[in-house]
Simulated assay, not measured.
Amino acid sequence: MQRPPTLPALVCAAALVLTACAGEDKDNKAPTTPSGVTAQASSATSVHVMWENSSDDKAVTGYEVFQGGKRVKTLPAAKNMVDINRLTPKTAYSFTVRARDAAGNLSEPSPAIGVSTPEPTPEDKQPPTRPGRLTGALDGKTQVRLSWEAATDNTKVTSYDIYQEDSRIHSVSGTETKALVTGLRPGTVYSFTVRARDAGENSSPDSNTVDLTTAAAPGKGANTAPTDLKFTVRKGAVDLSWMPPQANGPIETHELHINGTLATTIVWGVIPEGKTVTHEMIVPDPPGTRLSIKLRAKLPDGKWGDFSAQRTVVVR
């Protein structure tokens, strides 16, 4: 008669099974190497590094940026650009980027990109002029192409910074007047402006604003954002006008958000479709204050629609 296995044998067998299963689940595959790495000296003491997103068999969880072989920044997966500050003027630097996944696997380093910081201009307090005639166009479903007229400066424009609403999302060399912005979400309104910057870290006023709406994702209805938002700044007030969304029914209510916070609810009663509406916004803030303004409408089904493009005004 065959004897039953002893307890130690059973424990050993269970451990082998668990070890085998753990080995099967272990992620040993590294993400792809980040591509399209660029490094742009945006001042005498800072460099702007950017790269294209990597991919992984599970998910990329972050990026590591190296300066001359030394890690100087660790970033989440959603970030593919960073400013490296506190550098030495008139100095050559080299940067590489590696992607990381949840298991800690690191990609191969990207090819090293060299860049030199310019000479400092400590006495330069004059900002560049405003970039002119910003235009943009959709390029596929998740990216846009922007172009503008060059700014001028008493020394030299070292970079152009691209802003989406009030967040800088991209930078290009001061010799460039075009940019490709990638990684956008479908069915979303984006508002872009450009500022010129010099080696003294002086930034120009904002260019004109360009609004672009990416195509809706499959199965999602039409965009429900108010459109054509315009403003006129007066002393102590801002006059707003916009077109309510087409929503197969009457629009009676809008929310006005300032600097990301609900400021007031605007109620008129039924607004005829295709009619531009206006609102006077009283502003108690001191002159020079920057305010970011956007709206959304309450739809006929009781839900709030998409936000309009954002406008940034400077109080008089």
Results as ranks from 00 to 15, higher is better:
101 D>W: 07
93 Y>N: 03
171 S>A: 05
294 K>H: 12
23 G>Q: 15
15 A>W: 06
8 P>E: 05
175 T>L: 00
224 T>L: 14
56 D>F: 11
32 T>D: 07
219 G>D: 05
115 V>M: 09
219 G>K: 04
3 R>H: 07
75 L>G: 09
239 D>I: 08
186 P>G: 13
259 N>F: 06
170 H>G: 00
232 T>F: 09
170 H>E: 06
269 G>S: 14
238 V>P: 01
96 T>P: 03
102 A>V: 04
7 L>E: 05
147 S>H: 12
246 Q>H: 02
222 A>K: 15
272 P>N: 11
82 V>C: 03
199 A>G: 02
114 G>K: 10
194 V>N: 04
227 T>N: 05
239 D>F: 09
29 K>S: 13
73 K>Q: 14
131 P>E: 11
100 R>E: 08
150 A>C: 09
115 V>Q: 10
145 R>L: 10
173 S>D: 00
16 L>F: 12
9 A>R: 10
268 W>K: 13
172 V>P: 00
71 R>T: 15
277 V>N: 06
126 Q>K: 15
150 A>V: 09
233 V>T: 13
89 P>N: 10
218 P>A: 11
220 K>S: 07
267 V>E: 15
257 H>Q: 07
33 T>E: 09
126 Q>E: 15
176 E>W: 03
27 D>E: 09
211 D>E: 15
115 V>K: 07
294 K>W: 04
238 V>N: 02
57 D>A: 14
208 N>M: 01
60 V>K: 06
240 L>A: 08
51 W>Y: 01
273 E>S: 09
294 K>A: 06
258 I>Y: 02
63 Y>M: 09
228 D>V: 04
263 A>K: 11
125 K>I: 14
1 M>F: 09
20 A>T: 14
51 W>T: 02
194 V>A: 05
37 V>K: 00
295 L>N: 00
82 V>Q: 08
20 A>S: 15
54 S>D: 07
29 K>I: 14
193 T>R: 14
27 D>C: 05
4 P>E: 04
270 V>K: 13
53 N>F: 09
101 D>Q: 10
210 V>H: 08
266 I>T: 09
163 Y>V: 02
128 P>E: 11
310 Q>K: 15
138 L>P: 04
261 T>W: 04
15 A>T: 09
81 M>S: 14
296 R>G: 07
189 V>D: 07
93 Y>L: 03
167 S>G: 02
91 T>Y: 05
222 A>M: 12
120 P>C: 01
14 A>C: 12
155 T>W: 01
3 R>F: 07
312 T>P: 01
38 T>R: 12
276 T>M: 12
152 T>W: 01
153 D>I: 07
43 S>C: 04
219 G>I: 06
131 P>W: 09
172 V>R: 00
161 D>F: 01
189 V>T: 14
289 T>L: 06
309 A>E: 14
241 S>H: 07
310 Q>V: 15
178 K>Q: 14
100 R>I: 11
93 Y>K: 03
172 V>W: 00
111 P>G: 12
308 S>C: 05
48 H>K: 10
303 K>A: 11
185 R>W: 08
149 E>Y: 08
241 S>W: 05
154 N>R: 03
